[in-house]
Simulated assay, not measured.
Amino acid sequence: MQTTLVDAFSVFTYLNIIDFFDAHLLSAIQAFIQENPKGYFTIIGDPGMGKSAILAKYVQDSGCIAHFNVQLQGTNRADQFLESICKQLVNRCQLPYDPLPSNTTQDGDFLGQLLNEVSQRRNGKPVVIAVDALDEVDPTSYRDANILYLPPHLPEGVYFIMTRRRGVEVPFTTYAPVQIFNLLDYQVNSQHDVRMYIENRVDNSEKLRQQIDERQETILVFTDKIADKSENNFMYLRYVLQDIEKGLYKDLNLESFPQGLQGYYDFHWRRMGMTTNPLPDAKIKIVCILGEVKQPVSRQQICDFSGEDTRTVQTVLNEWEQFLHELIKDEQKRYSFYHASFRDFLHRKDILDKTGLTIPGIHSLIAKDQLKKWRNRRRE
């Protein structure tokens, strides 16, 4: 959990959306806790609006217990959530469960027991648990129950602060008070935060100011144009301002820049030659595999899944570096896409139809390699 929190908080610092958080969301959370004896408070919004970053800021400020689901890093199963939250509750309240019972991750029974015990020891203070990205939870990891085995009944003084994407429904029934906070209801505030973010990036980057000068734009006009193109999406700003700072796309005036996050993905897809005739089948296959793997994978694993050589795979990793999250595990670099919204882009019908690939076909490539390795291990 800690690594994910650090990553999410670094995004928050990068986005610089403190004004919105302090003025609206924090007060809404505080009011919910003050006005209800217990309950579930859910923040919803579109990909790239900063839900994880906002929640990370809340965790940082409040010191509450937290769990961040990250589909593309493989930390999105119910058993991982139960183990993480139960360990934190035990440590926080010094409860006599070390090690945790063997049934901790089987269902929500032990979590419910802990919450009852914590409620009795809270001394009038609220017990707050933050859970990020319900929409990224593996639906096969819980059985005929609430998502992540979240308890339908909560004891007094226990509150969950959660996030999920707009339009994604999750199995969740509760008899506790519920409140939804929709970031889309605060577009005026988001516009202010977007402008503040752009201005902050320009102020702190001589390279970016130089690129703006070369484009013969004033900072005010540049801010207006990029803010309009972003559709109030901070992930869009992260990518586009980074590109401009590097001196990319000098052949494009700002009016010709892509509109919105999905537009940017489509733009980069074409710029990387993924729509040429003939199609670069090997590169497309490698990118799609990166989008479908359940956890970060090494370059060699990508080679094994795709059947492509190391040089081809490394070329793709270099070309798509800005979209990738890189970590070191077992002394090897491992890769996954930075944001689940790019996986959504790869799932678009118009993208897949042109490639001749299918998502089940990609899954089959991965499964065949895993089965082959399993059989080889059995023979050893």
Results as ranks from 00 to 15, higher is better:
259 Q>S: 07
218 T>Q: 11
228 D>R: 12
241 L>E: 07
302 I>C: 06
312 T>G: 01
320 W>C: 05
258 P>I: 07
221 V>M: 11
314 Q>P: 01
286 I>Q: 04
299 R>P: 04
314 Q>V: 03
312 T>F: 01
275 T>P: 02
284 I>K: 04
277 N>Q: 15
303 C>N: 12
341 S>M: 12
240 V>Q: 03
324 L>Y: 01
223 T>Y: 05
266 D>H: 11
321 E>L: 04
256 S>T: 09
234 F>N: 07
295 Q>M: 08
242 Q>M: 10
301 Q>P: 10
271 R>L: 12
338 Y>T: 13
280 P>G: 04
283 K>C: 08
304 D>M: 12
254 L>I: 10
316 V>Q: 00
284 I>W: 00
208 L>E: 09
322 Q>Y: 07
257 F>I: 03
304 D>R: 13
281 D>L: 13
223 T>R: 00
292 E>C: 09
218 T>K: 06
310 T>A: 15
230 S>P: 11
226 I>D: 06
233 N>L: 12
300 Q>S: 14
236 Y>L: 08
327 L>Q: 13
206 E>G: 13
333 K>I: 08
261 L>N: 06
266 D>L: 15
230 S>A: 15
267 F>P: 02
244 I>T: 05
320 W>M: 04
277 N>V: 15
321 E>M: 03
241 L>V: 13
280 P>L: 00
329 K>S: 07
250 K>T: 08
308 E>T: 14
305 F>H: 04
310 T>I: 10
260 G>I: 02
286 I>H: 00
246 K>D: 10
334 R>L: 07
299 R>A: 15
225 K>P: 10
260 G>E: 04
309 D>I: 03
313 V>E: 01
232 N>I: 07
283 K>V: 05
339 H>K: 08
216 Q>G: 06
298 S>D: 08
318 N>F: 07
328 I>A: 01
283 K>Y: 11
287 V>L: 13
318 N>W: 06
267 F>D: 03
307 G>Y: 05
215 R>F: 07
219 I>M: 05
321 E>H: 08
323 F>D: 02
255 E>M: 09
206 E>W: 10
325 H>M: 02
292 E>N: 10
316 V>D: 02
218 T>W: 13
296 P>F: 04
255 E>L: 12
297 V>C: 05
254 L>T: 03
273 G>Q: 09
314 Q>S: 11
339 H>P: 12
237 L>D: 11
265 Y>Q: 02
311 R>W: 11
343 R>V: 14
309 D>L: 01
321 E>W: 01
243 D>H: 06
265 Y>N: 09
328 I>H: 02
277 N>G: 10
291 G>N: 04
238 R>F: 12
259 Q>R: 11
233 N>Y: 07
241 L>Y: 01
211 Q>M: 14
265 Y>K: 02
336 S>D: 02
210 Q>C: 09
302 I>D: 02
278 P>Y: 06
233 N>F: 03
245 E>K: 06
210 Q>W: 15
224 D>S: 11
286 I>T: 09
205 S>K: 07
273 G>M: 05
319 E>M: 04
278 P>D: 11
276 T>V: 14
332 Q>H: 10
329 K>W: 09
284 I>H: 00
282 A>W: 01
235 M>L: 15
265 Y>E: 05
261 L>A: 05
224 D>H: 12
246 K>T: 05
261 L>I: 15
216 Q>H: 11
307 G>N: 08
277 N>T: 14
227 A>E: 05
302 I>T: 03
330 D>I: 04
245 E>Y: 00
292 E>D: 11
281 D>M: 14
210 Q>T: 15
